[in-house]
Design a protein around this nucleic acid. Structure first.
Lengths: 145, 145
DNA sequence: CAGATCGTAACAATTGAAGTTGCAATATCT
DNA sequence: AGATATTGCAACTTCAATTGTTACGATCTG
């Protein structure tokens, strides 16, 4: 399976928008992401539905960021893009009649859910503002050189 | 993406084999897993290559477990089946030229790798013997009822 | 030798994200 | 009002990886 890159892509776009006053068109964003404008609209639609960005139609229109960077976490964006599966591995049968399989399922599900909880809690700890600040720090460091 | 169920399936088979003296044929195993014998052979080939099971061709042949349940962990089986991706989500571009994207990548990769380390360490903590003991305990509990 | 069984190649089915095409709707500019 | 830029969206196709299937050869047992 191809890995779901929607979270990474949207974070990339949001950080660009955070340092840009005018709206970006879908074509411009597609250029950043090296993809198609329709893919951009489709993916951004989830962010718009949750109020993280706004779109304006017509000439001069495009996409603007619409959230507080300090109050928006990577988890918010993950949820907004609608990623369903976190893991590429899973159980064979969710409701097995075989007792052996039930034991296996509970062991594997336990390991997966521990990892999922850690991932979710980590995504919830990091704000867009922190990423933007890291970017600024990188730029300052490069200027000094 | 369909989730990779090879780990669950192979654990299921190994636990059955641990409580069974004679070899199971691929057809019998396919019956347990509700799949095809060729899928069984293909998946079990990884276990055989790593010495966790043995196969015997010809009449009366089949598959037998060939490892010490106390020394074999879920992680060993995970690796033996050759699952490549743990996560269904990932980075958009592994080597971005854009500084914004590099910041995003490091944040997402950090969260994913923390979760991956936890999953791997958890899988490495659980042995097949512990699962077999859980199964036996379940059976004892059901008998008492 | 007959039959059971694994080994393996080759290809189809499935699933979900990503990519593409086409066109309607809407906003701006002249 | 008309031309142009832009989003909105439906309806496909493509892609990648597991899973499923068919076919046939190799090997072992009786």
């Amino acid at each position: 399976m191809r890995t779901d890159s929607r979270l990474s892509r949207m974070l990339h776009v949001l950080l660009h928008m955070a340092r840009h006053d005018r709206p970006y068109t879908s074509e411009q964003i597609a250029g950043m992401l090296q993809t198609n404008a329709v893919v951009v609209r489709r993916t951004m639609a989830g962010l718009r539905a949750n109020g993280y960005v706004q779109s304006v139609t017509g000439q001069g229109g495009g996409w603007k960021i619409a959230c507080d960077l300090n109050r928006t976490t990577l988890l918010d964006i993950h949820r907004a893009v609608g990623g369903r599966h976190i893991f590429a591995i899973g159980l064979d049968n969710a409701n097995p009649s075989c007792a052996v399989e039930r034991v296996v399922n509970s062991a594997v599900a336990d390991a997966l859910s521990r990892a999922e909880r850690l991932l979710i809690s980590r995504l919830g700890e990091v704000t867009l503002a922190e990423l933007a600040e890291q970017f600024d720090a990188t730029c300052r460091a490069e200027l000094k050189q």
